[in-house]
């Protein structure tokens, strides 16, 4: 099966090359200053700033949700999420956004939230379990 082996090796090489190309499709999590530098679509991690204005008014625009996010380097920027306000948004521990920087605002087209596990401590869990 010599021919097959050559082909097998060839395919593995193609696969490896393609996998390395994956490198282009990946990126490190950016922060606001990096996103502003490149202007490209990036993924960005941060936390929701609770004491800054949060706007979601479906009566005005159901696809416009704006809030302030603090990225890992501590910069706060306004984020405009192009969809409705997700469930449990306020409870999120950290937020991963996909989007780009436009002027001073971050335009996000996708959001992933990391929520704390349901019960932070056992006491609360028991409290929850005993409530009828």
């Amino acid at each position: 099966m010599k021919k097959s082996y050559i082909l097998a090796v060839l395919l593995v090489i193609i696969a490896v090359v393609l996998l390395f190309q994956t490198g282009n499709a990946t990126s490190e999590y950016a922060n606001f200053s990096k996103a502003a530098e490149t202007g490209d679509k990036v993924q960005l991690v941060g936390t929701y700033v609770k004491d800054k204005p949060t706007v979601y008014d479906p009566l005005t625009d159901p696809n416009y949700f704006s809030f302030f996010l603090e990225d890992l380097s501590g910069t706060e920027r306004e984020v405009v999420l192009l969809m409705g306000k997700p469930q449990d948004f306020e409870m999120s521990e950290s937020i991963v956004l996909t989007g780009r920087m436009q002027d001073e605002r971050f335009i996000a087209s996708d959001i992933q939230m990391k929520c704390p596990s349901k019960y932070k401590d056992e006491e609360e869990m028991i409290k929850n379990l005993t409530e009828s």
Binding site: T60, L82, M83, S109
Partner: peptide, 21 residues
């Protein structure tokens, strides 16, 4: 399709706005 205009969005971003009231 979203019925509210927002300036400065790319086509993909416009398409992401898929909620109606």
């Amino acid at each position: 399709q979203n019925q509210f205009l927002m300036e400065g969005l790319t086509e993909d971003e416009q398409l992401a706005r898929t909620t109606v009231r």
